[in-house]
Simulated scan of single mutants.
Amino acid sequence: MPEPRPYPFSAAERLNLDPFYARLRAQEPMSRVKLPYGEAAWLATRYEDAKVVLADPRFSRAAVLEKDEPRMRPGITGGGILSMDPPDHTRLRRLVAKAFTQRRVERLRPRTQEIADGLVDRMIEHGSPADLVEEFALPLPITVICELLGVPYEDRDDFREWSDAFLSTTKLTPEQVVDYMDRMFGYMAGLIAKRRVDPQDDLMSALIEARDEHDKLTEQEMVQLAAGILVAGHETTATQIPNFVYVLLTHPDQLEGLLADLDGLPRAVEELTRYVPLGVAAVFARYAVEDVELGGVTVRAGEPVLVSASSANRDEAVFDDPDRLDLTRENNAHIGFGHGPHHCLGAQLARLELQVGLRTLLTRLPGLRFAGGEDDVVWKEGMLVRGPSKLEVAWQSE
Rank of each mutant, 00 (worst) to 15 (best):
F159D: 14
R160W: 02
R160E: 06
R160S: 15
R160Y: 06
E161S: 14
E161G: 13
W162Q: 12
S163N: 07
S163G: 05
S163P: 12
S163W: 04
D164W: 01
D164V: 15
A165W: 06
A165K: 05
F166L: 15
L167N: 03
S168C: 05
S168M: 05
T169P: 04
T169Y: 00
T169I: 10
T169Q: 04
T170L: 08
T170Y: 04
T170A: 09
T170N: 12
T170F: 03
T170K: 10
K171M: 11
K171A: 13
K171G: 02
L172N: 11
L172I: 12
L172C: 12
L172P: 14
P174R: 05
P174S: 09
Q176Y: 03
Q176F: 01
Q176C: 03
V177S: 06
V177A: 10
V178P: 08
D179A: 13
D179Q: 13
Y180E: 07
M181A: 03
D182P: 01
D182H: 04
R183V: 03
R183C: 09
M184C: 11
F185N: 11
G186V: 11
Y187W: 02
M188A: 14
L191V: 10
L191A: 11
L191H: 00
I192P: 02
K194R: 13
K194H: 10
R195F: 01
R195W: 01
R195A: 10
R196I: 04
R196K: 14
V197C: 02
D198Q: 14
D198E: 13
P199C: 09
P199F: 05
Q200N: 08
D202V: 11
L203N: 09
L203H: 04
M204A: 15
M204G: 09
S205H: 00
A206K: 05
L207W: 06
L207E: 09
L207P: 06
I208R: 01
I208H: 02
I208Y: 01
E209Q: 11
E209F: 05
E209V: 13
R211M: 12
D212N: 11
D212E: 15
D212H: 01
